[in-house]
């Protein structure tokens, strides 16, 4: 009798536990969904707008489902010369990423592996530099670029970008390089590699996840940056996407649809990039190198 009751109680408790587990899972999923939805909302909104027709954009009440017209893309490209800005952004962001990574890889390897005095100081000052508010260095940077005659040139923007993204790149890669087993580099040197060969044949392939992470972050920064671009690129010829899109707006016009279309074009490459390299960003590539 007693045992039966106890048994039933236990079953009930078990059921309760199961329900709680399901509930917590549900809540977890719900919260995640809300957060994802909220962060995606602006994106969804302008992608949605970009696919409307002129009439749909101004309709009251607003239409939720766009008709899927590509009219705004066409006009952004033809009337507002969107591709010109895309090209400039690609050049600036691409070059920034390449140069930053090249320098970061070399310096991060030195910081991670070679015996150096004041290593902590170097790392600390890197962090410090990356914390300067942009506005405080904008004046000097502009002055330097002006005296070099580099206002309105690609290098006029690439060099400040490289400077600003280097601390991030060096930090990420130093941490990655430090985690790689040292024996692999010893093995490479025994196998006849010099330091540089060891770096690009062993260290870089193994740190690929870190390098991709750094590359994407740097690229996104350079692709989105607005403030320096506005200061340094005053001529249409060299302006990048964020500036270009901001200047779509005339004194009397607000080309809402074209701005949405351009924003979509500006965002999609980044999304694609992250999706493409997501797999490469997973860790654990070095599994199996050494025991344990």
């Amino acid at each position: 009798m007693n045992a039966a009751i106890r048994c039933e109680l236990r079953v009930a408790r078990c059921g309760f536990k199961k329900i709680m587990m399901k509930l917590s899972k549900l809540i977890f999923c719900g919260v995640t969904f809300v957060i994802v939805f909220m962060s995606l909302l602006p994106f969804i909104w302008f992608v949605n707008t970009s696919l409307k027709t002129q009439a749909e954009v101004t309709a009251i009440p607003p239409t939720l489902a766009p008709s899927g017209s590509l009219h705004f893309y066409h006009s952004a490209i033809v009337k507002y010369d969107l591709l010109h800005y895309v090209k400039n952004s690609a050049i600036v962001a691409g070059a920034t990423t390449f140069i930053t990574l090249f320098i970061s890889i070399l310096s991060a390897y030195v910081l991670a592996r070679l015996r150096l005095k004041y290593k902590g100081l170097i790392m600390g000052s890197l962090l410090l530099v990356s914390m300067f508010p942009q506005i405080s260095i904008a004046g000097p940077v502009w002055k330097i670029m002006q005296s070099l005659g580099w206002l309105n040139s690609y290098q006029g923007l690439i060099i400040p970008y490289v400077t600003l993204t280097l601390p991030l790149g060096v930090w990420i890669l130093t941490i990655f390089f430090k985690e790689l087993p040292k024996e692999l580099e010893d093995a490479a040197r025994i196998d006849g590699c010099n330091r540089i060969q060891t770096l690009y044949k062993i260290v870089v392939p193994l740190a690929a996840p870190g390098i991709f992470t750094a590359a994407i972050l740097v690229f996104i920064y350079a692709w989105n940056e607005f403030f320096f671009a506005l200061l340094i690129m005053t001529q249409r010829k060299f302006q990048t996407l964020p500036i270009g899109i901001a200047l779509f707006q005339g004194q009397y016009t607000l080309p809402w649809g074209e701005i949405a279309a351009a924003s979509t074009v500006a965002t999609v490459p980044l999304v694609l990039l992250v999706f493409l390299f997501q797999k490469r960003i997973v860790r654990g590539l070095s599994a199996g190198a050494v025991k344990g």
Binding site: P181, E183, L184, D186, A187, A188, I190, I202, L206, L285, S286, A287, G288, A289, V290, K291, G292
Partner: peptide, 10 residues
């Protein structure tokens, strides 16, 4: 040299 923990290139 053969290392204590193999050190094969992963």
């Amino acid at each position: 040299m053969v290392f204590q923990n193999y050190a094969l290139y992963p």
